[in-house]
Structures are given as C-alpha cells and as structure tokens.
Nucleic acid binder design. Structure first.
Lengths: 156, 156
DNA sequence: TTGACTCCCATAATTACCCATGATATCCCA
DNA sequence: TGGGATATCATGGGTAATTATGGGAGTCAA
C-alpha cells in the first residue's frame, strides 16, 4: 500500500501544472496507472489525493459485495449506503502524470483550496492533501497548538 | 472493471447527440461493444448508464445464483425476485457510439431527466448518470451538505 | 418525398507529449 | 575527506494529438 509522508511546497505554472513530489510518485510506483485521484475535502479547504489502485480496489470491492449478496439494488440504483462513495466518485478527478511527473489541477479543485501559484503537498499516510501554502500554515499552527495543549494538559 | 469518476457537462446538439466524456469511453475501451446501456433512474430525475460488460456480468451472476439456489422458477418464468432486474432490462436501451464517441439519447430518457440542450455526466463508480445540469447542481448541493453535516457532526 | 439516422469531414480549444534548463542532491574516486 | 562528475528533480515552453462540437451528404424505411 502506498504511504505518503512529509510536506512539500511546489510551484503551479501558468498552465496549471504542479510537480507531484518525487517521494509520492515513488510511493505510487507499483501501480499500473500513472497518476492520482483527487477530490475536494468535505471538511477543509484542501484537495484530497491518492493512487488509482486504491480507488479501483474500492470500486471493485463494492461491486462484488453487492452482487455476491444478491443485492442488485446498489449496483443498479445506488443508494444502498449513505451516499458517501457515490458522492466522492462524482467529485473526483483522475489526474494523469505528464512525462515529468506533473498533474494539472482542475479549476474546481483549485478554487476550493484557494490555490494560486503555489501548492503544499501534505502527506497523511494512506492519502495526501494539497493546500494553498498560507492556508496550510495557519491550519497546521492551529492543529499543532491544539495537540500540544491537549498533551501538556493531560501530562501536567 | 470499468470505473466512472468525475463530472462533465456536454452539449446536446439539435440532432440530439451528446459526446460521452473521453474518460468514460476509455473506461469502456476493452469491451467489444462500442456503446453504453442506459435506463431511467427509478429514484431520481436522471439517466443511469454503464457498459455492456457490466450488464453481462449482472445477468450472468443473477443466472448463476438462481441455478445454485435450485430456483428454476426465475430462470424459466422470471419474476422470482422483486422484479427490479426484470424491470430495468425492459427499460434499458443500447446506445451505440458514432465515429466521434457520441450517443443519441432516446426521447423517453431525455424527458425523464428534463434534459434540453446540455447534459451533465456524473461518475458513480461502476456506473454513471446523466442529468440536466441545473437539476444536478441542486441535487449535488443537497447531497454534499448532508455529508458535510454528518462528517462534522461525527468529528465534533 | 419526408423524416430519422448513420457516416464523413471540418474546426477551435484544450490537452498531452516532447525537449531544454538550472538547481540540488548523490555518487565516486583519488 | 574533498571535490568534481553524474543523476535527479522541479520548472518552463513549443508543438502535435485529442476532444468536443458543428454541419453536410448519403441511406434506409415508412
């Protein structure tokens, strides 16, 4: 399974391209399809991303489960769960690498994250996020402060 | 397995033709039949669609299950389940691609979805939907708001 | 003949592919 | 342990291919 760690800040050129950090590409290296899946975070002004393989597993498993169970409802009409997967599929984009390991961020996602000419890649383990650098800086400060307070409060 | 993600808004010309997004056509690429299966959604004002291969799997799997269960009633006379699959089969149309990857939406389906001169293709994983753009926009807003509320509520 | 549909061609915009560059990091060998 | 040679990476831009879209001519059936 691909795992993403560390953060990188890269440039978005005027064609809308960004280099995906080499370390992330290496993590995806075993997958046949060279590219990433991206969709807007539902809770934060950021873009969520992971490999194509992860998505395929998700879709395949859902399909098999519904058919093996004899439940054709989900396959034909959807709606057998709370709609989370269905919605994410609609919001997702497949972003293929160019020869240099770059992707083009769709306008919709760029706007959602408030990205202009720079983008911060944030490793989150099985997936990663893409933020506008200044937004991420603030977000991270809050995140760390909250954690620190909780740990100190618990200890002292 | 063909997988459909992301959303695309395309024009319906005055001959009733719409381009199926290239990404969807690529997802169907391995299949022998060049075209899609479409039927009206039973729960929403939208058209449901997928590839011929998915339909075949669905039918095959249903056949196998009925034989394994020793239930020949369904195989011979149909109607052994709630009628969902039978009904969908009847409502379905085979829509072949023209040379440019376009399909013609049957009048019945166009009316059901309220489509006029534009159509939004919505990826749902193993299948996709076709909506009237404004109707989908409203639908998606509700869908996302519900998810967001649930995610925030669960976290806090 | 009229209409509906299929096949074919044209076009503008977008996207993918190719090569080039500077900077950084890595390697290798004395 | 230096320090030059070599990869690798992020970045930039030009060109070719693809996509979505439009319309015309030909075909079949009523």
């Amino acid at each position: 399974m691909a795992s993403f760690i560390s953060t990188y800040e890269n440039k978005v050129d005027r064609k809308g391209r960004v280099s995906v950090p080499a370390a992330y590409r290496a993590a995806l290296g075993t997958e046949t399809y060279q590219g990433v899946i991206a969709y807007p975070s539902l809770t934060e002004p950021a873009i969520e991303g992971f490999g194509r393989g992860t998505l395929d597993q998700l879709i395949q498993r859902r399909f098999d489960q519904s058919l093996d169970g004899g439940d054709f409802t989900q396959t034909l009409v959807g709606k057998s769960d709370d709609g989370l997967v269905e919605t994410i599929m609609a919001l997702s984009s497949e972003l293929p690498f160019d020869g240099e390991g770059r992707i083009i961020l769709p306008a919709r996602l760029v706007e959602h994250a408030g990205i202009t000419d720079r983008a911060t890649f944030v490793g989150r383990g099985t997936r990663f996020q893409i933020w506008a650098p200044d937004a991420y800086e603030k977000h991270q400060a809050v995140e760390v402060a909250a954690l620190r307070a909780r740990l100190n409060g618990g200890a002292a």
